[in-house]
Simulated assay, not measured.
Amino acid sequence: MSFYQSGQPATVIYQADPAVVQHLHGVRESLHHSCKPYLNHKVSVQTIDGQVHEGTIAGMDNKHMYLMVAGSTDMVRGYYNPYYKPYPGPGYPYPYPYPYPGNAILPLVLFELLAISLI
């Protein structure tokens, strides 16, 4: 990241209301604690923008839910798994070069989630 120093003080364009920041921290913490017991469960997730994703909760941290979604080889939905390799055929020493062939991990920001339901 680069910074431009003009010698003048920076003009603040936007600053979040401290009450909003505190509320978002609470929402994020609540979602984290609510979803963590459902790791490796299939869920349907709706974002505040109305997008719906179905997949398996692959992991969580304090900012993101990582949803494993079924990818396709034709990339119709735009998910891309750089590790996807089709099954090479009989005689290959391992079943797959990657443990989840065709799947991709979709990181979702916790405070942008509207609804999460088990499927």
Rank of each mutant, 00 (worst) to 15 (best):
I57P: 00
H32I: 01
H64E: 11
V76I: 08
H64N: 14
G102M: 00
S30D: 15
Q15T: 12
Y14F: 12
N62L: 07
K42S: 11
T11M: 08
I116M: 12
N103G: 02
G55Y: 01
P97L: 13
L106C: 07
N81S: 13
A58P: 05
M68Y: 01
K42I: 11
Q46K: 14
V43Q: 04
V76K: 12
P97S: 11
V45F: 02
A70E: 14
L106G: 02
Q8H: 09
K36T: 07
A19P: 02
Q22A: 14
E29F: 06
D74C: 10
Y79C: 05
P101L: 03
Y96K: 00
L110W: 06
E29G: 06
F3W: 09
Y98C: 00
G59R: 08
Y38F: 15
P107K: 11
L39H: 00
Y96A: 03
L113V: 13
H41W: 09
R28H: 05
P95M: 03
V52R: 11
S44D: 10
Q51F: 10
N103P: 01
T56L: 06
P9C: 12
S30H: 10
G102V: 00
P99I: 05
L113S: 05
H33D: 13
Q51I: 06
T47R: 03
H64D: 09
D74N: 15
V69E: 02
V20R: 13
Q22W: 10
L114N: 14
S2K: 02
G55S: 04
L24F: 09
G89A: 04
I105E: 01
